[in-house]
């Protein structure tokens, strides 16, 4: 059973016992999700299994290019497969995008805190994700779906730029067909062929009509989106100790040594990336730290 606190799990050290040393994995599957986003499935070359909690991330290393933190977006628990959904935005993510099945990727991890799915049992779970932010939170969605009786209402709010940018559309469609899951997808712009909602994600929060005191809200996306989502949730009566966010900062060591990910007093790699919002709200609105 997972720990119910938000402290990091003990680091899992694969291979030579050094958390700074990437372990070799092989790409066993690759899927282009949208024009700039793809999913890769990795397996350790030595055949060992991998365990992670939802919200944790790995450092992925492309040989000769560099290393980036990427959340794990598969089903939580233990398995041979390690799933990552990645948006191609720069040097390393572009190099990862160019790899194919059979190619090698170095991996360190899993690192960081995780979404508190155990301590939120019995609550109404509200997920608010924007853009690529659906990937780090997908393990939570899968966990709640597989343990549906442990939770109250389950509301998924997802915003994307255009219908073509919607991540995991088939999976969202499957969830939507369940009578006890409420899935609200909205896009910022569309043409007439799109039958769904158009408008910013904040407009859906009011529409979802949840009872604030029962809610545990998991919010993941760019900071500007999280800012406005939280503002709207607060307006409805959801307090900051009911809201969890996942933060992103540039990283290097991922084990709290180098300071690259420093955010005020926090080292996002080890104190985060998942935070209960009331613990970090004082840092959230500060332009640059």
């Amino acid at each position: 059973m997972l720990d119910t606190s938000l402290s990091p799990l003990p680091p899992v050290v694969h291979g030579a016992g050094d958390p700074m040393l990437p372990v070799k994995t092989r790409i066993v599957d690759r899927k282009q999700e949208t024009a700039d986003t793809f999913t890769i499935e990795l397996e350790f070359e030595n055949g060992s299994e991998f365990t992670f909690a939802p919200g944790q991330f790995n450092m992925l290393y492309t040989f000769g290019t560099g290393e980036v933190p990427i959340s794990i977006s598969g089903t939580p628990g233990t398995s041979k497969n390690i799933v990552h959904t990645i948006r191609d935005v720069g040097v390393v993510t572009s190099a990862l995008s160019g790899l194919n099945v059979g190619d090698k990727v170095g991996l360190r991890g899993p690192f960081g805190t995780y979404w508190p799915i155990e301590s939120c049992k019995g609550k109404d779970i509200v997920i608010a994700a924007g853009g690529i932010g659906l990937a780090p939170i997908r393990p939570v969605i899968r966990h709640v779906m597989e343990n549906r009786d442990d939770y109250g209402r389950f509301i998924i709010l997802y915003g994307a730029r255009t219908p073509e940018d919607i991540l995991y559309p088939e999976e969202l469609g499957q969830y939507k067909s369940n009578l006890d899951v409420e899935v609200w997808v909205t896009v910022d712009r569309a043409d007439r062929s799109w039958r769904g909602h158009v408008g910013v994600i904040t407009t859906m929060i009011t529409g979802a009509g949840f009872e604030p005191e029962k809610v545990a809200a998991f919010v993941c996306g760019p900071e500007i989106m999280m800012h406005f989502v939280i503002m709207n949730m607060n307006r409805l009566g959801v307090t900051n100790d009911q809201i969890y966010v996942s933060m992103e900062r540039n990283m290097q060591c991922a084990i709290g040594r180098c300071g690259h990910c420093q955010w005020g007093t926090e080292f996002v790699c080890k104190d985060g990336p998942v935070y209960r919002f009331d613990k970090v709200e004082h840092l959230f609105n500060i332009r640059q730290l």
């Binding site: 924007g130 853009g131 690529i132 932010g133 915003g159 994307a160 730029r161 940018d165 910022d188 712009r189 910013v200 994600i201 904040t202 996306g221 760019p222 500007i224 989106m225 406005f228």
Partner: peptide, 8 residues
């Protein structure tokens, strides 16, 4: 918010 590319 739409202009600010909320999901970029």
């Amino acid at each position: 918010l739409q202009l600010a590319e909320l999901y970029a």
